[in-house]
Design a protein around this nucleic acid. Structure first.
Lengths: 212, 212
DNA sequence: CCAAATAGGGACAGCCCTATCCCTTTTTTT
DNA sequence: AAAAAAAGGGATAGGGCTGTCCCTATTTGG
């Protein structure tokens, strides 16, 4: 077994922090991920442990979100406390000027929260491996709403959303084939899950989401 | 079966939007939840469907995040497009003055993202039922870091984090009892899960999180 | 010292999710 | 009309998570 991958997420918004932690723990076979809501907790953890990856939202409680000095100070203190780790900055209000500033401090990634999707972590780490830096500025990509229903299993949920985002003009069979390829399962299985999901939705709701 | 509970989450940050949608879909027995990244998508959905609950982050793409007029405009347009729904505003930069403004527009909840935790939705809806309005300003509550490990099942994860947050001075048995009560399971089971989780962590990591 | 607490397991049944293969009927397209 | 596509479902095997009950050492506290 590979040795444990150690990561720390410094982010004050709890749902976002937990989502990021979940992204990391599922991206690695064997990862231990800590979450800190404040700089104090982060620095405490950094003093007691060595991390491979630290994700930082510079807009932490106790600092002025409009002060660029405060934002830089948060990141630089964390980088100084963990010189061997990779540091990724994540922010809701991103711009290229700030990206350059953080890069100057030693960060290897600058990520806007808007448009940062599940599974993006691998791409970001690839960027870092190949080019030393990853930048993902916020951008709007959504054309079809997300959909989520209590009665659906995760697989069904996934397939419903993939189907809703399909390119028009393809036959169902082609789409099943494509979706099956993405998920690594059979075409038949993809078809089955989709039909099952749609049946569940129709039964409980009598109203299908857009694109289905 | 109760009729389907319909909700819409208007939020541009994808991970946050999905987290909120997940919160809603698990809080209700039978819920259909849509997610919109932009005001356009939101208004399109509102035109085609009636919702019971709409959650709005006013800081959407295409609007000036520093302009209070823009923020108010986003919320008022959504409220006008769905007069029968309950409207909850969620924001990263919350303050009481803005809460009052949105309340004036007809919103029934104003929630700061910091400190907004999993499971909070029920409390918020309770507030709304009893007092007509729910306000949760951002505040820092964390004393112990979150912990998350690839090898742990959700139950084990949950128990590890509950144990890490235990109040000092209690015997393990008392804590097992308390945790079991929260989760609705046996004391023995809680004890078992905790021991299993700790063993997994020790085996893969040789380093336990704080508080364990 | 004795009793309680703790560590560290094994066994087992139930359940849901996953994935595959199979089937029939209806609709659409050619 | 024949062929392809699509809807709608049944059966089944495997696996992981859950929850309960049970067991033996070892340590701690009174």
């Amino acid at each position: 077994m590979e040795s444990t991958y150690r990561a720390l997420v410094v982010e004050d918004q709890t749902l976002m922090r937990l989502a990021l932690m979940d992204q990391i723990s599922t991206a690695f076979e064997n990862a231990a991920v800590l979450g800190a809501q404040t700089l104090e907790i982060a620095l405490y953890e950094l003093a007691n442990e060595n991390f491979d990856l630290v994700i930082i939202d510079p807009g932490l409680p106790g600092f002025d979100p409009t002060s660029q000095d405060d934002r830089l100070s948060v990141v630089s203190r964390i980088i100084e406390a963990s010189p061997t780790a990779l540091h990724a900055v994540i922010t809701g209000s991103d711009n290229t000027a700030e990206a350059d500033q953080f890069r100057g401090l030693g960060a290897v990634a600058y990520l806007g929260k808007t448009g940062l999707e599940p599974g993006m972590l691998c791409d970001v780490l690839d960027d870092i491996s190949t080019s030393g830096f990853s930048i993902r500025l916020s951008r709007v990509t959504m054309t079809v709403p997300d959909y989520c229903h209590s009665a659906l299993t995760p697989r069904e949920q996934e397939i419903i959303n993939l189907m809703a985002r399909r390119e028009p003009g393809m036959s169902r069979i082609q789409i099943y084939e494509q979706v099956a390829g993405k998920l690594g399962i059979d075409r038949d299985s993809a078809e089955k899950y989709f039909k099952k999901a749609r049946a569940k939705i129709m039964k409980s709701d009598h109203k299908l989401p857009v694109g289905i």
